[in-house]
Every structure is written in structure tokens, then in C-alpha cells.
Design a protein around this nucleic acid. Structure first.
Length: 421
RNA sequence: GUGCCUAUGGUGUAAUGGUUAGCACUAGAGCUUGUGGAGCUUUCAGUUCGGGUUCGAAUCCCGAUAGGCACCCCA
């Protein structure tokens, strides 16, 4: 006897049974319809990419430890894409001369990461990726954040349920490099620490900062603890620093003008990746059950230069399916289960099946979703099953119907029957 | 990758180291001969896997696997 195979899905990935798929499709529908409303075009690519695409940007360590990477039979190193941004940058760079800018593109790729699974974190997930290429002005940020806002609302959250947090890479770099004169190494460490600020006890955070900044620590902490953007601007020396801060204000004002008021400057918002060059933002659920980033994105003006082209300004964000589902569960906005058919046709005796299929075909031509019961069971069981599946209407086909060509449609809610022929 | 917690039919659960691992739901079969949602009868199905301790293990120990939590990382 062969050993029985396990029915479990591979570690960290999900099976989508029909009930799950209905939810997944609902999420995709939201993503697609909002993206299309903003005039974005859909694209896609293979899950396989040359490993070098990620090495160039993320470094050897991330590729080796955080991705699915293997060597194919032709000795090529292949990676299952862990994110979409390098792919879209590659595609845009490839056709740069023939594309019409500004370019508005979106995609719903599945992405793979080799990591320890836990709640909200799996090895394969689906993510909406939205990018706009070729716009230097902050209007690009305002537009994509507006989209992120619309999508969050479509998940069923109210303005008071979530918050849009903004920061600027330029501003943080200015503060760390120019104001405090830190080298790349130290400012990287400080950035990581600041990113973790909310997770650490205040005294631990402060003493870690002191270790890195010594005498300048107090000044830095004062800056970080600014009440708001104006407060922070007042403490910044130098014109370009103030300009960087005013960019954030422009976004806040622009969004407020669109009626989006739950926006907040957050100097501790860092975002992990190096390729961001300007504004970075996240959408955060305020519900304590779910304190995770719902969306994250920002401006990355330099990424296309990796492909030898001149720079193309770009702003984009990503939104994951796992958090989307968790949010809908938390806020009770999951779509109701829908019946798989509008009409069920029950067959009294098996010899009536052919006529039943004919009736079904006609009804489908009229736009109905119709399923014919092929179980060969007794009529009562067939009707009972249709009812359990939530089908709204039932037609029974027996000898009499075959003979006359007439049949009755029964409404399962009211019990009323209507003669059709 | 590291540490901690958890693991009983498909689902949810019960079982002082000692009966044949119990219950509910679901699923299958049957009972009322062409109109259901009920009831009754009945069947299938489980201690995650591999070792160990013990007269005896779902229960204790070790390892593996999976899930959760924290770290790491966050695309």
C-alpha cells in the first residue's frame, strides 16, 4: 500500500474553496473597479523572474533568505516574484520609448516570500499594485492616496476607523544626513530604530537613540516628538529641509480639499525599502484587533535608472488580500454567500433528463444561471438540496412536462408556482 | 532562521495514565410512490506523524510536521 498523501496545502499557502474564492473575488472586484475608475490599465507578467532583478535592488541576503530562488535546467537563477515593483519597472523601462506618459497601470499579482507564516502573513499572497509613471508633481501622490482611501472605504471602513500616515524620505534623509551629519551606516540604524519606536518602551528607545547620536540625541528626540508638522518645521534648520516638510503639507491640504481628513504626518513612518525617494505613506486600521498596515507606498523616482534608462518619476502602492479579508471580517462587511444558480431543475425520472437539459439551455439563453440535478435521487431530496444551496427557483421535469412542454416555476421563498410554456 | 504555546472524525468539542475514545453538527443510506426545509432509523469517519517510558498512553518524554504568538524581516 502506498502511503496516503496529505490533504494539507503546502506550508504557508492557502486553498481557496468556493466560499473563500467568493471573498477573494469580492476583494479583486473592489481593486479592479476603483483602479479602472481612475483610468488605470491592467497589466501582468509571469511569477518567474531572473534572480538578478531582485539582487540589484535588495541585495544578496534578501534574495537568498526571503525568496523562493532556484536554478533551472539551463543554469539560470530564477526567483518567484516577491513583489511587483521591479517587474513593472522592468516592463516600463523595456518599452519606454513607445509608451505614452503619464502611465497609469495596475495589476493583481500573486507574490511569494519564503518566511515564517503567522496571522496575516503567508508565503503566497495576492496584492493590488498601482503605479503612476511620469508625474513629477505631488498631484501623483494625491491621486494614488485618494485611490487607497476609496478602496479602504469600499472594504467597509468609515473615516474614523482608519488613518492615512505620511512621511517623506527626503525629509528624513535631510534631517539625518544634513542636520545631524550622520554617515550612511548610522543613519540606517537610526531609521530602523525609529521605525520600531511604537513597539519599544520609551526609555529603551531613548537610550538606544542616545547610543547612536550621543550629544545630539536630545535634539533629535525633540524633533521626532514634534506635535505636528508646523511644530517640526520650526525646529528644522535650512531651506531645503523646510521645503521637504512643506511637501507633506501640500499632500495633506490636497487630500483635505477632496474631503479626506483622516491624514496625519508621522515622522516614525519609515517603510522598509530603500528605493523610495520622496513621500511615503501607509493606511492604518485603528481597530486594536488589526493594527497592521493596510496599504503602503510612496515615490520611487530612481528605480528605472537600474535598466540604463534615464530616470522616470514614479509613485505607487500595494494592498494585500490577507489584510483586506481580515478587515472585512473585523468590520462585518464580508459579502453574503450567494447561491451558485438562480434556477435548479429537478428531474423526476432519469428518462426526463434530456428534456430537462433542453429547458435549462433555453433558460440560460435568457440569462439565467441554471443547474440541472443529475443525481438520480428522489424528487424530494433534489428539492431539499436545491434549497440548501440557496437556489431561489425550482422547476420539476417529469413525464407530464415532457408531454405538454409546459412546466411550473416554483419560488422557494413564497412557495408560489408560475406556469410557463 | 530563533524562542514560546498548541494539535482528538470533515467541523466544533469530551475523556483522574486504566471499559470498545463520548457528544453535537455535517456527509452518505433508508422510511412517507410528483413538491422540499422536519422527524425517525442507520452508516462512514478521529487521537497529526515517528520514536520512547509503562503491565497499560489521547494523556508523560524526545524528535518531526503544521498552526498561532514574539523575534527577524516587511515587498
Amino acid at each position: 500500500m502506498a502511503k496516503k498523501l496529505s490533504t494539507d496545502a503546502y506550508k504557508g499557502v492557502r486553498d481557496f474553496f468556493p466560499a473563500d474564492m467568493a471573498i477573494e473575488n469580492k476583494i479583486f472586484d473592489i481593486w479592479r473597479s476603483v483602479s479602472e475608475k481612475y483610468g488605470y490599465e491592467e497589466y501582468n507578467a509571469s511569477v518567474l523572474e531572473p534572480a538578478d532583478l531582485y539582487r540589484a535592488k535588495s541585495g544578496e541576503e534578501i534574495v537568498n533568505e526571503q525568496t523562493y530562488t532556484f536554478t533551472d535546467r539551463g543554469d539560470r537563477e530564477v526567483t518567484l516574484r516577491p513583489e511587483m515593483t521591479p517587474t513593472v519597472a522592468r516592463m516600463v523601462a523595456a518599452r519606454k520609448r513607445e509608451l505614452i506618459f503619464p502611465l497609469r497601470w495596475f495589476s493583481i499579482p500573486n507574490l511569494f516570500r519564503y518566511e515564517q507564516p503567522q496571522r496575516g502573513r503567508v508565503r503566497e499572497h495576492w496584492q493590488l499594485n498601482v503605479d503612476i509613471f511620469g508625474v513629477e508633481s505631488l498631484a501623483a501622490e494625491i491621486e494614488v492616496i485618494n485611490m487607497a482611501y476609496d478602496i479602504t472605504r469600499a472594504y467597509g471602513l468609515k473615516d474614523t476607523d482608519f488613518e492615512i500616515r505620511l512621511n517623506s524620505r527626503k525629509l528624513m534623509n535631510y534631517i539625518l544626513r544634513d542636520m545631524f551629519g550622520l554617515d550612511a551606516e548610522i543613519s540606517r540604524k537610526v531609521s530602523k530604530l525609529v521605525d520600531k519606536k511604537d513597539k519599544l518602551p520609551a526609555d529603551v528607545f531613548n537610550s538606544e537613540i542616545e547610543k547612536l547620536l550621543s550629544v545630539k540625541a536630545a535634539e533629535f528626540l525633540a524633533l521626532l516628538n514634534s506635535k505636528n508638522l508646523t511644530d517640526l518645521s520650526a525646529k528644522i534648520s535650512g531651506k531645503s529641509g523646510v521645503n521637504n516638510a512643506s511637501e507633506i503639507q501640500t499632500i495633506i491640504d490636497g487630500l483635505a480639499n477632496l474631503g479626506i481628513k483622516n491624514v496625519r504626518f508621522d515622522p516614525t513612518l519609515m517603510r522598509g525599502f530603500d528605493y523610495y525617494t520622496g513621500i511615503v505613506f501607509e493606511v492604518f486600521d485603528l481597530n486594536p484587533a488589526n493594527r497592521r498596515s493596510v496599504f503602503g507606498g510612496g515615490r520611487y523616482d530612481d528605480l528605472l535608472a537600474l535598466f540604463g534608462n534615464e530616470k522616470v518619476p514614479a509613485v505607487g502602492f500595494g494592498a494585500g488580500d490577507v489584510i483586506a479579508r481580515d478587515l472585512m471580517e473585523t468590520y462585518g462587511t464580508l459579502p453574503p454567500a450567494l447561491a451558485s444558480a438562480d434556477i435548479a431543475i429537478c428531474v423526476v425520472e432519469e428518462k426526463n433528463t434530456l428534456f430537462a437539459l433542453e429547458v435549462a439551455s433555453e433558460l440560460r439563453d435568457e440569462g439565467n444561471r441554471v443547474s440541472v440535478d443529475l443525481s438520480g435521487k428522489k424528487l424530494g431530496d433534489q428539492i431539499s438540496k436545491a434549497n440548501k444551496r440557496g437556489v431561489a427557483k425550482v422547476i420539476c421535469i417529469g413525464d407530464e412536462e415532457v408531454k405538454t412542454g409546459q412546466y411550473r416555476v416554483k419560488d422557494m421563498k413564497t412557495g408560489a408556482e408560475e406556469e410557463i410554456g
